[in-house]
């Protein structure tokens, strides 16, 4: 039973940022995170609930010269099924494929997944890996002003981001990867569908002459926010990768994460998983 002060559904970005500017607004996209919180009584009834699903300009996937821009309202299903995206950024489709169930994928949006800022959000690890940035729009002089924040700087803590209360996330921009870049995403849950990640791992780079160049490593569900594993990346870069070296890197990865105990797993088990799965994913990426 929801008890928001009021509800509205603007049709344009202008109206939406105008409303945000007035304060006390809760943004509703697909609702697959938000409505669960509302159902549990975990919301501010003095707020206006603003449904942004009618703002069509927030929907498109567009391919620009150097990057792809994904509108915040793009659903996980749309990402999973977009033919061009699946060629240019197969990692996103891989992650979307392991996301929730069809019903949730059909309503859940990429922007909602990002703004919800769960350490276990499944699109976040691949987006970090691909060096994505988000656009945040706000009202300025009666118009719309926008700023761009790199995703690696966007997450502040569980459920907390750089997005201010007067800002709306409008799209995600992802630079095209260099020739030869390959990456893998692995989500570990205890069952094959409808599971929240216990840990998730993304590893990518350009494999050349035994080296994984410009390596990218991101982990989810093993720290307060999904993050780029800089130490692990550095270790990968340093020397050619054989199976012995991969094992050493897995140990570095295990020591770099800061997991907690929760109902899904203990910190100890998460560390073991990251160790074992880093070997698996890294071997996979380097096994041309």
């Amino acid at each position: 039973m929801t008890n928001f002060k009021s509800y509205l559904a603007p049709a344009t970005l202008d109206e939406a940022v105008d409303q945000l500017n007035q304060g006390n607004v809760t943004v509703l996209a697909g609702g697959s995170d938000l409505m669960l919180r509302v159902g549990a009584g975990n919301y501010d009834p003095s707020h206006t609930l603003m449904n942004i699903l009618k703002i069509n300009e927030l929907r498109n996937i567009s391919f620009e010269d150097n990057e792809v821009q994904i509108g915040t309202l793009t659903t996980i299903t749309e990402i999973r099924e977009d033919p061009e995206l699946s060629i240019k950024m197969p990692l996103l489709g891989q992650a979307a494929d392991q996301f929730a169930s069809m019903q949730i994928r059909n309503v859940g949006t990429i922007g909602g997944n990002i703004c919800n800022a769960s350490p276990a959000g499944d699109m976040l690890v691949p987006l970090l890996l691909l060096d994505a940035a988000v656009e945040l729009a706000r009202q300025s002089d009666g118009g719309v002003a926008s700023r761009r924040v790199a995703l690696k700087d966007f997450f502040v803590g569980p459920g907390k981001t750089q997005c201010q209360s007067n800002e709306l996330l409008t799209r995600v921009s992802i630079p095209f990867s260099k020739q030869g870049f390959r990456a893998r995403f692995y989500k570990f849950g205890t069952r094959p569908a409808l599971d929240i990640s216990t840990v998730s791992i993304g590893i990518g780079g350009i494999f050349n002459n035994g080296y994984l160049q410009a390596p990218r490593v991101a982990f989810g569900a093993v720290a307060p926010v999904p993050f780029m594993a800089l130490k692990t990346m550095k270790a990968i870069e340093q020397s050619p990768l054989d199976s012995e070296r991969i094992k050493e890197i897995a140990e570095i990865a295990r020591d770099e994460i800061k997991p907690i105990d929760d109902v899904r797993a203990t910190a100890w088990y998460r560390k073991q998983l990251v160790h074992n799965l880093t070997i698996k994913v890294l071997s996979d990426v380097t096994d041309a």
Binding site: T190, R191, P192, A193, L194, D195, I196, V263, R264
Partner: peptide
């Protein structure tokens, strides 16, 4: 875990 997210019934693919 008073919910089907964390109380894991067997799902179809299992």
């Amino acid at each position: 875990n008073p919910n089907f997210r964390d109380y894991k019934l067997i799902t179809a693919p299992e």
